[in-house]
Amino acid sequence: MELAYLRHLSHESVPLFALVRTTLGCVLLGPDGVAEIAARIDGRLPWGRADLLSRLTRRDGAVRRAESDLRRFALARCRPKRLAAMLARHLPEGFAYLNVGHSNLTALTLRAVRQGGAGRIAVLIHDAIPLEFPQYQRPGVAEEFAGRLQRVRAHADLVIYNSADTRARVEAQMQAWGLLPPALVAHLGVEPAVPGALPTGIDAERPYFVVLGTIEPRKGHDLLLDLWEEMGPQAPGLIICGARGWNNAAVFARLDALPADGPVREMAGLDDAQIAALLQRSCGLLFPSRAEGYGLPPMEAAALGVPVVSSDLPAIREVLGNIPVYLKESDRYQWLSAIESLKTGHKTQQLTVSGADFIPPTWEDHFNLVLRLT
């Protein structure tokens, strides 16, 4: 999503600047610097060598090189307390500040942006999950997230929400702190990748399902592992795509104990084309998530014409309507029945036809809404 914003705003008629927090302070990129960094993020140019400052302060080699290039192409740099002065010196008066990543929403940054000459501050909020489901978070995350929302309420001229459901849930939290800022709902664009080659070792002739997303407690991987254990040796394949997250030691231990020749496989680090190929040839996407602010995987699967079985979540219904099969996350019988039906093809044709009618939201529509008000 942040990359979509970078690509789109780079082609607008107004100049684009970027504010980046690094280990050693704040970096401001001008339009030329933004273009250089964007080319490296896209892979069109390689990242440069780590400079001395990065070698002294960072252990991660990739971050060393990225922060070094940020300094090389910087229009200006400063310590956080000098941010307002730096922005006032280098940016046009009345600039618009867009924050779309839940990061840098500190009181210091937001005040400095305003004092530095911002005419308008817009923030995109993805969900209220840390406050509604603190049991799925690392210690302290819920409190930290509440602070972010409080600062957004106090400083933002516009809050952008990815779904009406997210807006309702976040504003239910915000209203306890005072007046609500103006808001806009703009669905995120869905751009399914062009399918490439299947990952090595996948037998396309054997029925299999895909689950896609970070392996964290709210995503429901534990339910799927239980179902596959219950189905036993005759179970179809289950391909688990996504990086390992947090607070999920029991699931990680079960994944580590999977037999190499079993039906369940964990495949991290796949590129978009490989994931699209896996989805396109699968019996369907399984999405037993317990909470979502938007839910891109079901939308990407539906855009490819792939059957979707999902927990019954308002954000998914908001965009996909009646295309998926919706199930209670806790009803194992329903999940087993849906998996069996799709494996044997009883529901595949009906769901695929429904999916063919899905017109996914576009980034063009998203930006037409957002930029009109920012």
Results as ranks from 00 to 15, higher is better:
D60G: 03
A122K: 05
D32P: 00
L238W: 12
F133T: 06
A176C: 13
R265V: 00
G48Q: 02
H126P: 10
E36V: 01
A172G: 15
A62H: 13
G232L: 13
L238I: 12
R317V: 04
P199A: 15
G284I: 06
V309Q: 02
E191A: 14
R169W: 11
F145K: 05
L227F: 05
N99L: 04
G295E: 11
A268R: 13
E300D: 10
P298K: 06
G33F: 14
I239H: 11
L238E: 11
I125T: 11
V353E: 12
A50S: 14
V353T: 12
M231C: 10
L188T: 07
I215V: 15
A76T: 11
C26Q: 07
M267F: 12
L296V: 03
N99P: 01
E340W: 04
E364C: 00
L313H: 08
S310R: 03
P360N: 01
G237E: 06
E93V: 09
L3G: 10
E229A: 06
L285Y: 06
S341T: 00
P297K: 01
F367W: 00
R332D: 09
G140Y: 08
I275T: 14
A107W: 12
A356T: 07
A268T: 11
I316F: 00
P236Y: 07
G305S: 00
R64W: 10
R281S: 13
V14L: 13
S310Y: 03
T23N: 03
R44A: 12
I129Y: 09
G196D: 06
P181N: 10
G201A: 05
L24I: 02
L131K: 03
S289Q: 05
D203M: 14
G245P: 02
E143K: 13
D357P: 00
M86P: 02
A35E: 08
D272H: 04
A250N: 10
L180D: 11
G119I: 10
V170T: 13
M299S: 03
L105C: 04
S103H: 15
F133A: 07
Y294T: 05
R49A: 15
F358P: 02
G284P: 06
A142H: 03
R332E: 11
P130Y: 09
G101L: 02
L83G: 08
I239V: 15
G101E: 08
P314C: 03
